[in-house]
Design a binder for these strands. Structure first.
Length: 535
DNA sequence: CGCTTTTGACCGGCGC
DNA sequence: GCGCCGGTCAAAAGCG
């Protein structure tokens, strides 16, 4: 607050000085006007930020209180009857999930989330400028995820907010991310400060994708600063740093999988501290989201040196459902929590069957649907598509299309419900009809438009990872309860980003797969895109 | 000429 | 303490 006033007074002072100067140099009047305008804008932005902050603070308080209350209830219940508590816990979880999961908006909160995300979409329909506004709204949603002390998230939010104010946030960024020389940066990057609170090292997001080029095009500008042979892989690992801002702490390293040379493993680390082009926003924000998830996971699940989704560790701790998403693994090995997205295998059934047997405390009696799959043929993308276009487009999907009726499991399996992210579900009474409406259309339309743009693959992968990761139970209920909207918005953002990315880089024959378990046990959250794009 | 890439050296963390 | 290893630096080379 004090800083707010300070800034305001400073801006006034600057304006006065500017007026003085303008007397002497009338030629600068226009410039002064600009400065004044900018000051006004900054004030507006500041007041908006403060408003948002207060709102979020209130929400965080509410969440904290609710959580505390729930915790007490659970404790009491466990004292009464353990078995009964387990079942009721499950139901409780279910109920909680209803409020947590997007699309299962039986609670007011979930409705709000849906609404928030809906806003994003609506904004996205209007073009780039509005997409930025959408990002601002997304920021609102995202902010739910993290209380003010979560700097990882705020790193993302900062990015988004800077977009929101169309570059005026740069000064803010400068304040938060003081420029450092490269020497300092190498050992204490900004995002390291961000992660200082976390006992673990920088979290990473790793993406495995089939890519013929030396790197995936993720929309960012990278400069190679090193190459080294890593142990166990004859293929050298290339190290890149983001060059879009001199102080940007983000690094990535790229390495070919020696088992399959067509597979490129890209690992991202850190959070961008600058504005990003649309094509890079999704990856940046979602990697940050994934990092946040990892951080949350590590904070709640410390007993295992390494785990993969689904993990019951966090479930046990948080009474939240374990995550079960194919081709995604979470590892805290080497003190570097890493979320890995495998976009290279259509099915990872064997792998994840193992997981299911390993991690699921009780047999899963429910026979799940076959892998959810989207299969679309896309029309040519002659003009830049919009979400309006996407939404208006009829989805040609099989009954087994990616939908909340399959993706998430039946009510008896609350485990997977957090991932029933059909975002704009307004009618909770008719989920099967309405839930998939948004997500399916959205994704389906996106797939139609999207070609085999590797950058999109990575971006969407990261987006999905963030979505998925947030439900892993690593989050406390309160966190989780708010993560869906933000994560889903990450997905949306990824899609919108892909839109722009594609329109810029138009490529052909997208096939994006995040295949689900083909087996009976998996909650099959997978979809396949097949689209064509004629430049 | 300026920017990027290459590549050997160096550094710090970690395990033994 | 030592060695291994991942990661980074920085000078040299390459490139447009």
């Amino acid at each position: 607050m004090a800083s707010n006033q300070e800034i305001c007074s400073n801006t006034k002072g600057e304006t006065n000085l500017s007026l003085e100067a303008s007397k002497n140099r009338p030629g600068e009047l226009a410039e002064m006007d600009q400065v004044r305008e900018e000051n006004g804008r900054l004030k507006l932005v500041l007041s908006n930020i403060m408003k948002d902050y207060k709102t979020l603070q209130q929400q965080i308080d509410n969440i904290t209180r609710t959580d505390h209350h729930q915790q007490q209830e659970e404790d009491n219940r466990s004292c009464d009857d353990k078995d009964a508590a387990d079942s009721s816990q499950e139901e409780d979880d279910h109920d909680e999930l209803v409020s947590l999961s997007l699309g299962r908006s039986s609670s007011l909160e979930a409705k709000n989330k849906d609404l928030a995300v809906h806003k994003v979409i609506k904004k996205d329909e209007d073009g780039d400028d509005d997409m930025e506004r959408g990002l601002a709204l997304r920021l609102d949603g995202r902010s739910y995820d993290f209380s003010g002390d979560d700097e990882i998230a705020s790193g993302v939010s900062r990015n988004q907010s800077s977009r929101e104010v169309e570059g005026d946030g740069a000064s803010d960024q400068t304040t938060r991310y003081p420029r450092k020389d490269s020497k300092t940066m190498s050992t204490s990057g900004d995002d390291e400060n961000v992660l200082q609170q976390s006992p673990a090292k920088k979290a990473r997001v790793s993406v495995r994708a089939i890519c013929s080029g030396p790197t995936m095009n993720d929309g960012c500008q990278w400069r190679k600063y090193g190459q080294k042979k890593a142990k166990g892989n004859p293929c050298p690992r290339a190290y890149y740093r983001c060059t879009m801002s001199p102080s940007c702490p983000v690094r990535k390293h790229v390495q070919r999988c020696h088992e399959n040379m067509s597979v490129l493993i890209t690992t991202y680390e850190g959070t961008h501290n600058h504005q990003l082009p649309p094509a890079a926003t999704a990856m940046a924000s979602t990697t940050s989201a994934a990092v946040s998830m990892l951080k949350a996971s590590s904070s709640t699940s410390t007993s295992q040196p390494s785990f993969s989704f689904p993990s019951t560790t966090s479930t046990t701790i948080n009474n939240t459902p374990p995550f079960y998403f194919p081709n995604t693994t979470l590892s805290t090995l080497q003190s570097h929590p890493t979320i890995t997205l495998d976009l290279t295998t259509p099915s990872a059934s064997s792998r994840y069957n193992n997981y299911s047997s390993t991690f699921f405390p009780t047999p899963q009696p429910i026979a799940y649907s076959p892998p959810a799959c989207l299969n679309f043929s896309a029309p040519s993308l002659s003009s830049s598509p919009s979400f309006e276009h996407w939404r208006n487009h009829n989805v040609q999907s099989s009954p087994s299309t990616f939908s909340t009726t399959q993706l998430p499991l039946p009510s008896k399996t609350p485990f997977y419900q957090p991932y029933s992210y059909s975002i704009p579900n307004k009618n909770t009474s008719d989920q099967t009809q309405h839930q998939p409406q948004f997500s399916t259309e959205k994704i389906a339309a996106a797939t139609k438009e999207i070609t085999s743009n590797p950058s999109f693959q990575s971006a969407l992968a990261a987006a999905i990872s963030s979505i998925v990761g947030r439900g892993t139970g690593g989050f406390a209920g309160s966190m989780e309860s708010h993560s869906g909207a933000a994560s889903a918005s990450s997905l949306l953002n990824a899609i919108s980003t892909a839109e722009s990315s594609i329109s810029e880089q138009g490529e052909k024959n997208l096939r994006f797969e995040l295949s689900p378990l083909a087996s009976s046990k998996g909650p099959l959250a997978g979809f396949t895109h097949q689209g064509e794009h004629n430049k």
